[in-house]
C-alpha cells in the first residue's frame, strides 16, 4: 500500500512541481502585487487602493463591457456556425465532406497574430475594393469606426474558432446511436424534427464543452485584438486583456494592472462556473 502511494506521488511530482512553479506561485505573487503600486521595478504596499480606483476607471469599465459584448457575440456565433458545419459534414461520409472538414479546421492552425494581419488586409483593402466597385457603402471604411472594429474582431474569431468547435460537435454527432434516428425516420419524422428532437437533446454534453471553451477563450483574446485593431479606433476595441497588458507594459502601472487581472480572473471564474453548473444541470 505504502509503495503504491509513494509511486503515485512520484509519477505526478514533475507535473505538480511545474504547475506550482509556473502557475500557482506566480499567481499568489500576483495577488500580492495587486495590493501594491508596483511599476515593475519598485513596489510599496497601498492596500485596496487599486481596487477602489478600478471601480471608477472609465476605460477599464468600458473594456469590461466591450469584452462581455464581444463574448456574447462570439459564443453564440461560433456555436451556431460550428454546429452548422458539423451537421453539413456529417450528412454523409464521402471525400468531399472530409475535404470540407479540413478546410473548416485550417483557420484554427494559423496563429492569432497572422490571422489578425490577414483579416486586416481583407477588411481594409478587399472590403474597400468591393465596396467601391459595387458601390456598397457598408463595405467601405471597415475598422475605422467602433462598430466595424468590434464586428471585425467578432468575424475573425468566428472564422478561427468555428472549425475547432465543429470537431467537438462532429464527434458527438457521430456518437448518436443510429437506431434512434432510424426509428424516428420510420415514425415519419422529417429532417427538422429529427434535428430538434433527436439530435439536439443528445448533443447537450457537447454544448457544455463548446460553450465553456468559447467563453473562456473569448474572455482571454489578445493577439487577434492586437494585430487586427490594436484597440483602435480611439481605444474603442480595446478588450480587457489588451487593457491589462497596456496598463502594465505601456504605462508601467503594474500593480494596478495586476488588480485588473485579478478582477478578470474572478469574473471569468464566476461566469465559467455558472455556465458549467447550468449546462450540467440541463444535461441530466
Amino acid at each position: 500500500m505504502f509503495t503504491r502511494k509513494y509511486n503515485y506521488w512520484l509519477f505526478i511530482a514533475p507535473t505538480l512541481i511545474l504547475l506550482a512553479v509556473i502557475i500557482v506561485i506566480p499567481f499568489i505573487i500576483g495577488i500580492f502585487y495587486s495590493f501594491t503600486n508596483s511599476n515593475g521595478l519598485t513596489a510599496s504596499w497601498i492596500g485596496l487602493k487599486n481596487y477602489q480606483l478600478l471601480l471608477s476607471d472609465d476605460n477599464f469599465l468600458e473594456s469590461c463591457w466591450l469584452t462581455i459584448l464581444f463574448s456574447l457575440l462570439s459564443v453564440v456565433g461560433i456555436n451556431v456556425i460550428g454546429l452548422g458545419f458539423a451537421l453539413l459534414v456529417t450528412r454523409s461520409d464521402n471525400y468531399f465532406n472530409r475535404l470540407l472538414r479540413t478546410i473548416f479546421f485550417v483557420p484554427n492552425l494559423i496563429g492569432g497574430i497572422l490571422l489578425g494581419f490577414i483579416w486586416q488586409f481583407i477588411f481594409i483593402q478587399i472590403f474597400q475594393a468591393f465596396g467601391e466597385s459595387l458601390d456598397w457603402s457598408w463595405l467601405k471604411g471597415w475598422l475605422s469606426t467602433p462598430a466595424t472594429g468590434l464586428w471585425g474582431l467578432v468575424i475573425l474569431f468566428w472564422w478561427q474558432m468555428s472549425g475547432y468547435i465543429m470537431l467537438i460537435y462532429i464527434s458527438f454527432l457521430n456518437n448518436i446511436p443510429k437506431n434512434t434516428i432510424e426509428s424516428a425516420e420510420l415514425d415519419g419524422a422529417n429532417n427538422q424534427q429529427i434535428f430538434w428532437h433527436i439530435k439536439l437533446p443528445q448533443l447537450a454534453p457537447a454544448f457544455t464543452i463548446s460553450l465553456f471553451l468559447t467563453l473562456a477563450n473569448s474572455f482571454k483574446i489578445y493577439e487577434q485584438n492586437l494585430a487586427l485593431t490594436n484597440g483602435g479606433p480611439y481605444r474603442s476595441t480595446e478588450l480587457i486583456s489588451m487593457n491589462i497588458y497596456n496598463t502594465a507594459f505601456v504605462n508601467y502601472q503594474q500593480g494596478y494592472a495586476q488588480a485588473e487581472g485579478i478582477v478578470l480572473f474572478i469574473f471569468v471564474m464566476l461566469v465559467s462556473f455558472a455556465q458549467l453548473y447550468f449546462s450540467r444541470k440541463r444535461e441530466s
Binding site: 476605460n59 484597440g231 483602435g232 479606433p233 480611439y234 481605444r235 497596456n246 496598463t247 505601456v250 504605462n251 508601467y252
Partner: peptide
C-alpha cells in the same frame, strides 16, 4: 508612458 497610445493618439483620432 502611455500618453501616446492612450491619450493624444485616441483623442486625435
Amino acid at each position: 508612458n502611455g500618453f501616446t497610445q492612450e491619450a493624444i493618439g485616441p483623442n486625435m483620432q
